[in-house]
């Protein structure tokens, strides 16, 4: 599968850049692009901020995912406490990061 020329991938590894993620996603949407985001390790704490729901509403359901293992490691319940805006299918593995690299023409780490 070739990378989608209209898709930006964001790999989130830090837990303190939500405003940058939102700001860049809004800018991408204004430019008519799609955004694909994966949250891993400590960054899964960002799912607890109100801005996370806003982010998911700007992206296709299948384009936002979090690392389920990270979520569990951080003490959250991956069955009864799925973050608002996500479905249980979007509790994923690191393979989702691989999918971002494959599908997105542009890529940034946050």
């Amino acid at each position: 599968m070739a990378a989608d020329p209209n898709k930006l991938g964001i790999f989130v590894t830090s837990n303190q850049n939500m405003r940058h993620i939102l700001g860049l996603t809004r800018a991408a949407k204004r430019a008519g692009k799609e955004v694909m985001v994966f949250f891993t390790f400590k960054s899964v704490h960002l799912t607890k901020s109100p801005e996370f729901l806003e982010l998911t509403q700007m992206c296709k359901v299948e384009d936002v995912a979090i690392c389920a293992d990270s979520y569990i490691c951080e003490g959250f319940d991956n069955v009864t406490d799925i973050p608002p805006g996500l479905t249980d299918k979007q509790m994923r593995t690191q393979a989702f990061h691989g999918a971002i690299l494959e599908e997105c023409a542009k890529y940034i780490v946050m």
């Binding site: 590894t13 891993t40 390790f41 400590k42 990270s70 593995t93 690191q94 393979a95 990061h97 691989g98 690299l101």
Partner: peptide
């Protein structure tokens, strides 16, 4: 250091 696990995830891919 979880970045090591993340790297492994990409190696598997």
């Amino acid at each position: 250091n979880d970045g090591i696990r993340s790297g492994l995830g990409l190696a598997v891919e």
